[in-house]
Each structure stands twice: as C-alpha cells, then as structure tokens.
Design a protein around this nucleic acid. Structure first.
Length: 270
DNA sequence: CTAAGGACCTGTCGGC
DNA sequence: TGCCGACAGGTCCTTA
C-alpha cells in the first residue's frame, strides 16, 4: 500500500486529529508483525501526550512527551482514526486508545508493518542509516550520482534502496525513471552524470504530485480519515504493460528487475 | 565491500 | 464453482 506519498498523506490527515491527545493505553491483539511488537510498548506509551506527527522515509513518527513511536505500514498497513470505538475487524491488530475515548487503529493484513518505541528516533537502528529525504535539500544530483559510482545494480533497485534515498518504492521509481527517460534496467554506474539533475527532479516532481493527489489508491489505500488517493489516474507506466506510451504510443513493456515489476517505454527510455 | 535471492504474510485474480 | 499458482505498495537478512 504505502510509499512515501501515501505515508505523507496519512500523516497529514492524522496530524490534526491526534496531536494533543493523551494515550490511555494500547491494545495489541496480534503482536506478530514484521517484528514482534514489544510487550513493554504499553507501559512506554501509557500516559504520554502526542506532541507531533512526523515522517522519515516511509516511517511515521508519533512523537510524545516521553519518546517516539515508529510506525511502518509495510506492504498492506493502514492507520485509521476513529472518534467512536467500533468492534475490531479482521487484521485490526493494534489500537492506540486515547483518554477521550477516541482511538487510532492499525490494520495490516500481510503484517509486514512494524511498531517500535524509541527515546531518540534518529539513533534507532532502522532509521540511523536511512538516506536523505527526496523532498529535502540533501538529495542533490551530485549526491545521487556519487552513490552510483562503480555500481552494477540496475538504477531502479538502486533508487529504491532506503540507504540511498528514503521512501522511493516501486510505483514511484517506475514513474520517475519514465519521466527522466532512463531505462530501469540500466546499471546505476552507467547513467551519465548529466542525466542526474533530471532524475532528481523527476523523483521530486512525481512524489510531490502524488502527495497533492492524496497518494495512489490501487486497491485499498486510504489516509487516516478514510479518503482514497487519486494519483493512480496520473500513472504513466506503472501497471500499464501493453498500453501505449503516453508520449510516443509505443507499447509499455514489463520486465522483472530485482524481483520487482518494472514498466518502461522502450522508445522513450534509454 | 557488492549483489542476488530468500524470507516474512494474506488476499486477489486469472486460468483450467 | 473450486483449486492452484502467480503476484501485490517493503525491506531485512543470509549467502556467495
């Protein structure tokens, strides 16, 4: 479900709803997520007040007056704020209950998501080595070019590596490479230096536009309030194998690269 | 160090 | 209608 734009959309929807609320307790019905949910999580969070809702890459950071809850939504996770508690449904694994009776619910069928408590999130092992935010100043053409020196991996999986750049997943890697005119299978080290400014701009643009559209809803993504996204309507290549390239009409091709479906136009991308 | 593949899960869809 | 395999928005870990 979520890449950076979907996580950011969730963050924006949830922020006004949960900041300022106090956590009464946490109910963990299924602790077997990507990593087992710590049994101490309840005591670490109870009584805390939420000060801010942040994001780093695809992690949501629920910052409280006594530590931060790191939330990753994995492949199928979603958070939903509820003002009226309803009986938990299938795959509603965790509830964060607030003192005013409202709650934040984590739903995650595939259980690839995770919850971690950290006193200092930037020092947490999962975040410590994460690359620059693609929408921040740190991601520059020179930086990205330098990470590609000597790399024989294809540029697409390289772009999707969290230590290189934070938050770029399969959909947006495909879309960004299409916009930049670069074949996803091209070795990272064989992308000419002068193409990196366009690549960085493409990554930024596609992520920004997706956020503006509320993310991409392929089957079930919804932000924290239940609203779906609309960026799927703007996808140029992702999921469009065989359809004409919007620019030249050549059929879009599908090729598996690094075990992930990769879509590209054989005429526009080199 | 790099690169490649497996692993972790459930749901859905297409083909027979 | 039912069964089976392939595939899905992620990413860590092991192996070579």
């Amino acid at each position: 479900m979520p890449e950076l734009p979907e996580v950011e959309t969730t963050r924006r929807g949830l922020e006004p709803l949960i900041v300022g609320r106090s956590i009464a307790h946490i109910e963990v019905r299924e602790p077997r997520l990507r990593w087992p949910v710590g049994s101490e999580l309840g005591s670490q969070l109870a009584g805390r007040r939420i000060l801010a809702l942040g994001r780093r890459g695809k992690y949501l950071l629920i910052e409280t007056d006594g530590g931060t809850l790191l939330v990753h939504l994995g492949m199928s996770g979603g958070l939903r704020y509820q003002s009226e508690p309803t009986p938990p449904g299938k795959h509603d694994h965790v509830d964060l209950l607030f003192t005013d009776g409202t709650l934040l619910r984590l739903h995650d069928p595939r259980r690839f998501g995770s919850l971690h408590f950290a006193d200092c999130p930037e020092e947490h092992a999962l975040l410590k080595h994460i690359g620059p935010e693609p929408l921040g100043d740190q991601l520059t053409a020179d930086y990205l070019w330098s990470t590609c020196r000597g790399r024989r991996v294809a540029i697409k999986p390289h772009l999707m590596t969290a230590r290189i750049v934070a938050g770029v997943g399969n959909i947006y890697a495909n879309e960004a490479l299409y916009r930049a005119g670069i074949r996803p299978a091209r070795a990272a080290g064989r992308v000419a230096r002068n193409r990196f400014p366009a690549l960085v701009e493409a990554v930024r643009d596609v992520l920004r536009e997706a956020i503006e559209q509320g993310g991409t809803t392929l089957r079930d993504f919804a932000d924290g309030t239940g609203k779906p996204g609309y960026f799927q309507l703007a996808l140029k290549v992702y999921g469009r194998a065989g359809e004409p390239c919007p620019s030249c009409g050549e059929p879009i091709r599908l090729k598996v690269i690094g075990q992930r479906a990769s879509y590209y136009c054989p005429r526009c991308q080199h």
